[in-house]
Structures are given as structure tokens and as C-alpha cells.
Amino acid sequence: MARTLKLDLDCCVNAGECYYNHPRLFAMEDDGAPRLLLTSIETDDDLREAEEAIEVCPSGAISLE
């Protein structure tokens, strides 16, 4: 079943770990904030990358629902 990838920009510190490590899922805005490129997580590869991004995010701004 597809899951939804979410970003909490209020809690994000612009660390950049998500978009440097997972450019397929996240992109960098000019101000350093991340933007979601993919919200619906369907394949195993997507899920693995999403979980890795959650793991490396220092502010806990990324979640899967």
C-alpha cells in the first residue's frame, strides 16, 4: 500500500541531508529549504530511501504516514 512522505518545514533546519543524500525524493530550494519531489511512496526502493532520509535528518522533519 502506498504511504505518504511528509515534510515539516517549521521544524526543518535546512541541514540539507535529505536532498544531498536522496535527490530523487527531495530538491533544494534557493533558500535552502527542501521540497518533496515524490510524496507517494510505492516501491521498495522508494521506501528504503525514504526511511534512510528519515534516519539522517537531524531535525526529525521528515515522516512517513
Binding site: V13, N14, A15, G16, E17, Y19, Y20, M28, D30, D31, G32, A33
Partner: peptide
């Protein structure tokens, strides 16, 4: 510091740690 070199206070950071992919 952070890897993106972009800060919420809008100020530029020092470059001493590099930035980006190899921060």
C-alpha cells in the same frame, strides 16, 4: 553550521567546512 549553507536567519555562513555533497 549546516550542509546547505542556507540559514533561517537569512545570513551567510562561513565556508570553512565547505558545503553541499562533501560538507
Amino acid at each position: 553550521e549546516n550542509r546547505s549553507g542556507r540559514y533561517k536567519d537569512g545570513k551567510p555562513g562561513h565556508l570553512g567546512f565547505g558545503m553541499g555533497q562533501h560538507f
